[in-house]
Every structure is written in structure tokens, then in C-alpha cells.
């Protein structure tokens, strides 16, 4: 049976992006944080989402290939400002 004010781990997992984006209302935010205090599983899950974001941010940008760069420059030179 679910408790009156309880938030479950399954719910925390569903709310994790809203929590990180800071769009939860004050009550929901409090309930999530209250849950994180005692729940190692959800603390780990939250950390892993943060780690995932951090690692995703390390994907290297690919350079614009020279051929495309040449085409862009050609397009620029063809263009005449109005």
C-alpha cells in the first residue's frame, strides 16, 4: 500500500529530468529531496543521470570537412549583401 504523502522510487525516476530542470513545484521538489535522503538507489540513479549528461557533453565536435568549407565560402562569395 502506498502512503499518503509518499513518493516511490519509480516516481522519482520519472521526475528526475523535471527535478534537474527545476520545474517541480515546491512541494514535489521537497518530496523528491526527502526521498533522496534515505534512498541510496535513487541517489545513485540521480548521480548516474548527471554523469550521463556530463559524458554526453564530452562527445567531440566533428570538424566541418574541407570540401564543405569550400562550398560554404563559395556560397558566401556568391552572395552579395543587400
Amino acid at each position: 500500500m502506498r502512503l499518503d504523502r509518499e513518493i516511490t522510487c519509480a516516481q522519482v525516476v520519472d521526475l528526475v529530468t523535471a527535478y534537474l530542470e527545476d520545474v517541480l513545484d515546491a512541494d514535489d521538489r521537497e518530496r523528491v529531496e526527502e526521498h533522496l535522503v534515505f534512498c541510496d538507489g535513487c541517489s545513485t540513479y540521480l548521480d548516474q543521470i548527471r554523469q550521463t549528461i556530463a559524458v554526453t557533453g564530452r562527445l567531440e565536435p566533428e570538424d566541418i570537412p574541407p570540401a564543405l568549407q569550400d562550398k560554404l565560402l563559395a556560397a558566401f562569395r556568391e552572395w552579395s549583401p543587400a
Binding site: 499518503d4 509518499e6 534515505f38 541510496d40
Partner: peptide, 23 residues
């Protein structure tokens, strides 16, 4: 070593015994 979880579990048992006020 998960004392906060133990404290939650105790409150959970209390609520199941007599409703939210018992929590």
C-alpha cells in the same frame, strides 16, 4: 548503515497501522 532508510521504514509501518497521522 542505512539509518535514514530505517527511520523511514519505521514511519511507514506506523502509517500502515493507523493512517498518515501515525506516520
Amino acid at each position: 548503515g542505512r539509518v535514514p532508510l530505517a527511520a523511514f521504514a519505521a514511519a511507514r509501518a506506523a502509517e500502515l497501522s493507523g493512517g498518515p497521522a501515525e506516520y
